[in-house]
Simulated assay, not measured.
Amino acid sequence: MGFAIDHVVIAVADLDRAIADYRRLGFTVEEGGEHPGRGSKNALVVFADGSYFELIAFGRPTPDFRWWRVLDQSGPGLVDFALLPNDIDRDVAAAQARGLDFEAPVDGGRARPDGERLVWKTARSPQSDTPFFCGDVTPRALRVPEGAVRTHANNAQGIGTVVVAVLNLERSIARYAALFDEPPAATYALPGLGIRVAHLGAGRGSITLATPSGKGEASDAIAAHLEKRGEGPFSVGLTGAAGALDRALSHGALLDFIGSAQS
């Protein structure tokens, strides 16, 4: 069962500054609105392939929410990513039947600056190596704007890959196999980088699970991420161009352009 990458979450301390900086990086940024009851607000960077970045900031402490805790303890950067389910209630029930510890879907929503109210359901595991589901109740086009907002001066076209830092590669592979209802992915050692990885397809993009296994710059970076931020998204590869983006302007998020989209 295939699920596409829906969006990647980047927690920031100052949303207005993050909006300005992402625009300096060449992204078109759309204000998203406020999440009632959570004290957070967001802005979106929406891509031609329908995926997007969510820049999120919190107006007050929210210690029961992992995104806020990571931001508070470890600073801004990548905190999570979401898959788009086919039917969230059915997909979660199926994953639970396969032994995955996803919790039941919960209602959520956002009030846009124009007054439009959006409603969705999310479902997630208490563990952060796997993504969460985000399924729309109101039309997805209300949550994910279309049109000119998806065109960017830097030519970004979409999210090609998400690299996820994990502590135990085999364990996380088994969890993703239960989530996607697919055979476990093969593992690969990259001795020159000091890491072991596994690649999984996700719609037109992919997910790469990575864990340190030796000496190397990549191993050191992933180990530091695990120590500081825990398991979860380590980096994002964007389609449409090539090269790295300034991490100072990306508010801690490790973002790279990886060239053309997969066919």
Rank of each mutant, 00 (worst) to 15 (best):
A104C: 03
D136M: 01
L84E: 15
S128V: 12
A94G: 01
I56G: 11
D16V: 09
D80T: 08
H35W: 05
G252A: 10
A148T: 12
L25Y: 03
L238W: 01
Y176A: 02
F47A: 05
N155P: 07
E31L: 11
P61H: 07
A48M: 09
G214W: 02
S40N: 13
R171Q: 14
L209W: 03
V70C: 04
G230K: 02
E227I: 05
I5F: 08
A224M: 08
G147D: 04
G194A: 06
A186N: 08
I159P: 10
V45W: 08
S263C: 12
L245M: 12
H199F: 15
R110C: 03
R90T: 15
A18G: 05
E30G: 09
R24L: 08
K121E: 02
H152I: 00
P36W: 13
A261L: 02
R247T: 13
E231V: 01
P113S: 09
L179W: 04
R23N: 08
D114W: 07
H35Q: 07
R247D: 09
T239W: 14
P139C: 07
V8R: 05
A18H: 00
E116F: 15
A95S: 11
A189W: 00
D246V: 00
L200R: 06
G243T: 04
A241H: 13
N42E: 10
E31D: 13
V144I: 15
I173A: 01
A223D: 04
E31G: 13
A4E: 14
F3Y: 15
V70Q: 01
G214N: 03
W67G: 11
F133G: 05
G77A: 12
L169R: 07
I159R: 01
R117D: 02
R196V: 08
D114R: 10
G39W: 05
R247Y: 06
R150K: 07
A43G: 03
F47C: 01
A174G: 15
S40F: 08
V137G: 05
